[in-house]
Every structure is written in C-alpha cells, then in structure tokens.
C-alpha cells in the first residue's frame, strides 16, 4: 500500500551527523586524487550522497533543478576555458610551479561538475511521476 511519505526522526538525526562526514570524504578523495587513487570524478560521485540523503529525509520537498543545471553548465565552461588557456598559452612551461595548482583546480571543478550532473540525473529519476494512482 502507498503509505504517505514522512521523514523519520532517527534518519533525520543520523543524516545530520553524516553530512559533514560525507563532505569531508568527498573533498578528501578530490584533493588527494593527484597522488593517490581518487580524483574529481569519484569525489563528485561521493558528494551526490548528500542530495540523495536529503531526498530520503524530505521526499516531498519541492526542489528546483534550474540552479544546479546552470551551475553544471557554468562549471563545464570553466573547465574548458581553464584547460584551453593552459594549453594555448603554454603556462606549464612558463610557470612550472603552477602545475600542481592547475591539477587541483581541474580536480575540484570536475568534482563539482560531476556532483551537479549526477544530482540532476538522480532527481530526474526520483521526481518523475510514473503510472501510480495517487
């Protein structure tokens, strides 16, 4: 039977405690991706868990995806611009110390881009009304 969805207090409390841990873990994977397993893609995928948890606690909350979609596109432009600027202006040869900063910046941007993209995909799946009667 279709019971009305309501958030459980236990779930709410535990997830409130989990949010910072998830953010910390995601950020750790993104930032250590240069020298260890991990990177922007994996870290971004971990960060999506925040939005999924939020959906579990408040399934009926009305969300607007327009901001996330816009952020997704803006970050994509940033990634392309940064990569092409570095390549075309041969920054790496001129400023070799910039290499690490550049890699980290690209990692962070990819992380945000992946988390935005996967969030949009998840909510598209979650919010589509199927053939249910009410």
């Amino acid at each position: 039977m279709n019971e009305e969805k309501h958030s459980s207090e236990i779930l709410e409390d535990i997830l409130q405690f989990m949010y910072p841990l998830i953010i910390l873990f995601g950020a750790y994977i993104i930032l250590t991706g240069l020298s260890q397993p991990g990177g922007g893609f994996q870290g971004g995928a971990v960060l999506v868990a925040i939005f999924m948890c939020r959906y579990l606690v408040y399934p009926d909350e009305v969300r607007s995806m327009s901001l996330t979609k816009r952020l997704d596109k803006i970050i994509l432009i940033f990634i392309l611009a940064l990569a092409s600027a570095i390549m075309l202006m041969s920054f790496r040869e001129v400023f070799p110390f910039m290499n690490k900063i550049y890699n980290m910046a690209i990692g962070i941007l990819i992380g945000i881009k992946v988390s935005c993209g996967l969030t949009v995909i998840f909510f598209t799946f979650a919010e589509i009304k199927g053939g249910e009667e009410d």
């Binding site: 994977i29 397993p37 991990g38 990177g39 893609f41 994996q42 995928a45 971990v46």
Partner: peptide
Amino acid sequence: PDAALAEAV
C-alpha cells in the same frame, strides 16, 4: 584501486 573506487561509488 582507482577503478575499484569508481566501481564502488
């Protein structure tokens, strides 16, 4: 391990 992390997530 890189592929493992992506697969797990």
